[in-house]
Design a protein around this nucleic acid. Structure first.
Lengths: 416, 416
DNA sequence: AAACATTTGTTTAATGAACATACAATATCG
DNA sequence: CGATATTGTATGTTCATTAAACAAATGTTT
């Protein structure tokens, strides 16, 4: 481990932990350094030191000093002063540096593995996604392939002067966030895989920390970064049905990182037996394979096939959608009643089916959400269509620098 | 409003809000003042300044200065030095002051209204609970009676030199925490009552802030203060079924304060129609009136009647419990799958029924909780049997002083 | 064009909270 | 009784911030 570990917000790593530490003068500086950085990162337009001072409430002098440190660490960069706007000396616009600080997003899914290198400006510095049938390889083999891709991406990053500060691996299953092991990923056929430890044996992973997270949670991170709503439930259905809860722009991961497992919420306690052993789980009617089967389509038909069937008005497909929409509506009503969050984003496999699913979902919610009268739940389409988990993984890897830049300053500041 | 407002943790008032404010030297002091106070308040035994210094990591000099301020504000008091323990000058034990700083807990329920005055040491300084059939009075009348009780309690508090710093009113319904209005309390037959505004018209409520909260959430606050587990789900069933989620010793209230509404989680989507309009809600089989009816008992029989029936092995009662336990088990499985919290406390009406309910609940959870293999859910009896909501309300009223003592220092420090 | 106004970013001294250290007070131990 | 240990206070130092003055770079007015 090189430095502090960034992680999805899990209940055991709350702000509360900080509250039990004594504050000294260094704490002020660390806090304000982070404040200044986040102000600049989240700004629509590049801001000058003076503007940052006004927005944060700090003095120009203080902001100047802090910005100097962020410049030296290559976290920020100065742009050319823009003249002709208004009277007075023109300010120097500050912007996130490009291709210097790099976060690595990794993803292993049923039919592909991928690596993305993201810099603080949000640009993809390098990327490698490859098709692979993960179920036909052992976990070790798959991770070795991933390490090769990381080595390639790393070469490219180093060529442009970048430093990798961390990596996050998204997996479709139950993960002990943030350090593993992976407990269970039924669709990969993985059981109790200590992925972080295995990856750390490869030299491609030297010099930075890797952490694990659930794929749905990571997709929600990307979605949260891309949209206005700061509270929402994200449904991420593929082969299985995952979910994530975002509160105040933070993913709520639960005590172990196992929260929001939507796929096995009970819809009908006397329903058919599910793969998990229980009866009437959501996944039984809403999972990709089950939904296609119910619509009378081959598993290979995919969403496209189902949409085609719906557009030609095939009754079997319409019925399958009605059943799935009802089940989703029942489950989401429960979720809203429990979480008190009323924005619902339908991502993954179901996103393109939203026009057909939505009326059925809404019918259930109107009936079952206790607070619907005062705050009607909204069903929303995702802003990010492809690679949401990969994007979220890379963002998560960058998070610690954004939140606690002080801890990274020494390492990142090039000494002459 | 006299000062800062204490509130249950709702997602909009996270620590995040603090992260956006500039830190100055005063911030250190405020932080450390709170740190020192909480260290002393949460200690098993009274601590000396030196011990506080060791535990917090601050210097003895700093702790001394901060403690002096807390003493002047009558938040702490010094005890007699205890001699004969070990070598060296004996330390002065510090303890929460008694009868000086008072938080007011208020509760309105179906058949009683109550007021409790609690001091920082956890002692009840005064209390008044009266039986009343709330449904036979208007909200205004009931609140007027409550105000009378507050006036009485206040007289007693003032006689012993206490200062009331805030009040929290617990209500069995949907409350817009923390300032209201109450949206709906079916069992009180209250709709859209702006209770805070109405109470503030009475002179008994002059000089401090009153806030609203859901009864189940407050009961969970009291339970959290009384036990070791820092993460749990609290089930609070009376006429309706309420619930609360505690994470890191904080109640998770949701965006509006409407979270954890367990009563209307769907158990059987094709079940009987519920009062709320939906079908197959948990409350249909687990609510007090419904459960007694299913057991073939009069509504007046109460838990005692049901227990008597169970102890004599009456089949109808046993069947009713089996159905209720199954429904609870299904719902709690969903809750565990969504929240990733595996301590479940069964409070309220159902607590004494736990010996009979537990096997049925556990049977469902074993089957339906996805992570049961790695982290088996535990069903626990509540530590607080009576008046949990009242206790939690009073604790909540005291919270702001405990969390942010600096904000109260000037008001509480008696000037010569 | 020159003087003036405006805004930015830096420099300098002052403030204040915590720290390190020394010290006085008060106990136990041998 | 002296040595040792521990507590709580007093003093000077450190360091990040503020306030205020200033230099730099532009637009505006005369």
């Amino acid at each position: 481990m090189v430095n502090g570990v960034s992680e999805l917000k899990s209940s055991s790593t709350n702000g509360n932990a900080n509250a039990t530490a004594a504050a000294r003068q260094v704490s002020i500086r660390e806090h304000n350094l982070g404040l200044v950085l986040r102000t600049i990162l989240h700004a629509e337009e590049p801001m000058s030191r003076a503007q940052v001072a006004v927005q944060t409430g700090l003095t120009r002098a203080t902001v100047s000093m802090l910005v100097d440190q962020l410049l030296a660490a290559r976290i920020l960069r100065e742009l050319e002063p823009v003249t002709g706007v208004k009277a007075g000396r023109p300010g120097t616009p500050l912007s996130p540096a490009r291709s210097t600080i790099i976060g690595l997003g990794l993803e292993i899914n049923v039919d592909y593995i991928g690596v993305r290198a993201l810099d603080l400006s949000g640009e993809v510095a390098a990327q490698s996604v490859k098709a692979i049938d993960v179920r036909r390889h052992s976990a070790k083999e798959t991770l070795a392939k991933l390490a090769e891709q990381v080595a390639q991406v790393r070469k490219k990053v180093r060529a442009t002067g970048g430093v990798i500060i961390g990596a996050t691996l998204g997996l479709p299953g139950l993960v002990d966030a943030p350090r593993g092991p992976l407990r269970l990923a039924p669709n990969l056929d993985w059981h109790d895989v200590d992925a972080v430890q295995m990856l750390d044996t490869f030299s491609a992973f030297d010099g930075f920390t890797t952490q694990l997270a659930n794929e749905a949670n990571l997709a929600a991170v990307a979605e949260a970064a891309a949209r206005e709503e700061s509270n929402f439930i994200y449904v991420s259905g593929e082969i299985g049905i995952g979910g994530a809860l975002v509160l105040d722009r933070e993913v709520f991961a639960g005590q172990h990182g196992w929260s929001s497992e939507l796929g096995h919420i009970t819809v009908d306690p006397d329903g058919e037996i599910c793969q998990c052993g229980a009866r009437g789980c959501l996944q039984r009617s809403v999972g990709q394979e089950e939904l296609l089967a119910a619509a009378g389509l081959e598993p290979t038909a995919g969403v496209e096939g189902l949409i085609a069937a719906l557009e030609t008005g095939q009754t079997r497909a319409e019925n399958a959608i009605a059943i799935a929409g009802r089940a989703l509506g029942i489950t989401l009503s429960d979720v809203v009643n429990l979480f008190d969050v009323n924005n619902i984003i339908i991502g993954g496999f179901h996103a393109p089916l939203l026009p057909w699913l939505q009326p059925h979902i809404e019918a259930q919610m109107a009936q079952r959400v206790l607070t619907a009268a005062w705050s009607k739940p909204k069903i929303l389409a995702p802003k990010i269509k492809d690679g949401a988990a990969l994007a979220g993984a890379a963002l998560t890897a960058l998070r610690d620098v954004q939140e606690h830049p002080a801890a990274w300053l020494e390492m990142l500041t090039a000494r002459p």
